[in-house]
Computed example of a mutant assay.
Amino acid sequence: MKAEILLTRQSTATVICKNCKRELPLESFYVNKTTQCPDKYCKECRKSLSRRHYLSGKKLPGINLSGRLPYPVITQIEDRGTRIQLILHALQVVHLSMERKKKKVRDEESLL
């Protein structure tokens, strides 16, 4: 029994946090489920870094938090001429897409 206790004491893994530079047990770190590797930062540092990043208001790529859409909304354009031009263009794009789809289906049917 004494050998088992010594073995468990020696096998306790510790990791050094890259932020606070403390040597902590493995339980103090989040573990990546896919790679099974511990995070570079301890749980306390990771929480504070995440909170600071969230409160700084930095935008994530692909997410627009300003309320403006990255593309024009046709129904919100006040200029009638521009709105009609955009509607006609959208209809043309949809029509061409439908034609490509029909052609693809016809080609697949002809192969069978």
Results as ranks from 00 to 15, higher is better:
10 Q>K: 15
10 Q>V: 10
10 Q>S: 12
12 T>M: 08
12 T>S: 09
13 A>E: 12
14 T>D: 06
15 V>K: 07
15 V>S: 05
16 I>F: 04
17 C>A: 00
17 C>R: 02
17 C>K: 03
18 K>F: 09
18 K>Y: 02
18 K>S: 09
18 K>T: 07
18 K>W: 10
19 N>W: 08
19 N>E: 13
19 N>A: 08
19 N>F: 08
20 C>I: 05
20 C>T: 04
21 K>N: 06
21 K>W: 02
21 K>G: 01
21 K>I: 04
23 E>V: 01
24 L>C: 00
24 L>T: 01
25 P>Q: 04
25 P>C: 02
26 L>E: 04
29 F>S: 01
30 Y>V: 06
32 N>S: 03
32 N>W: 01
32 N>V: 05
33 K>C: 04
33 K>L: 06
34 T>K: 13
34 T>M: 09
35 T>I: 07
35 T>C: 03
36 Q>Y: 10
37 C>N: 14
37 C>I: 11
37 C>A: 12
38 P>R: 08
38 P>L: 08
38 P>E: 02
38 P>W: 13
38 P>T: 05
39 D>R: 03
40 K>M: 05
40 K>C: 04
40 K>D: 04
41 Y>D: 05
42 C>P: 01
42 C>A: 02
43 K>D: 04
43 K>P: 00
43 K>M: 06
43 K>Y: 06
44 E>R: 10
44 E>H: 07
45 C>M: 03
45 C>L: 04
47 K>T: 11
47 K>N: 07
48 S>Y: 05
48 S>I: 07
48 S>Q: 11
48 S>G: 02
53 H>M: 07
53 H>A: 15
54 Y>D: 05
55 L>Q: 14
56 S>C: 09
56 S>A: 12
57 G>P: 01
57 G>T: 07
58 K>Q: 10
58 K>A: 12
58 K>D: 10
58 K>L: 10
59 K>F: 11
59 K>H: 12
59 K>A: 12
60 L>D: 14
60 L>Y: 08
61 P>E: 01
61 P>I: 07
61 P>D: 06
62 G>L: 00
62 G>C: 04
64 N>T: 10
64 N>L: 08
64 N>W: 08
64 N>Y: 15
64 N>A: 11
64 N>H: 14
65 L>D: 09
65 L>T: 13
65 L>C: 14
66 S>H: 14
67 G>V: 01
67 G>I: 00
68 R>L: 10
68 R>P: 05
70 P>V: 00
71 Y>S: 12
74 I>D: 00
75 T>W: 08
76 Q>T: 09
76 Q>W: 06
76 Q>D: 08
76 Q>S: 14
78 E>C: 10
79 D>Q: 01
79 D>Y: 00
81 G>Q: 14
81 G>C: 08
82 T>I: 15
82 T>C: 08
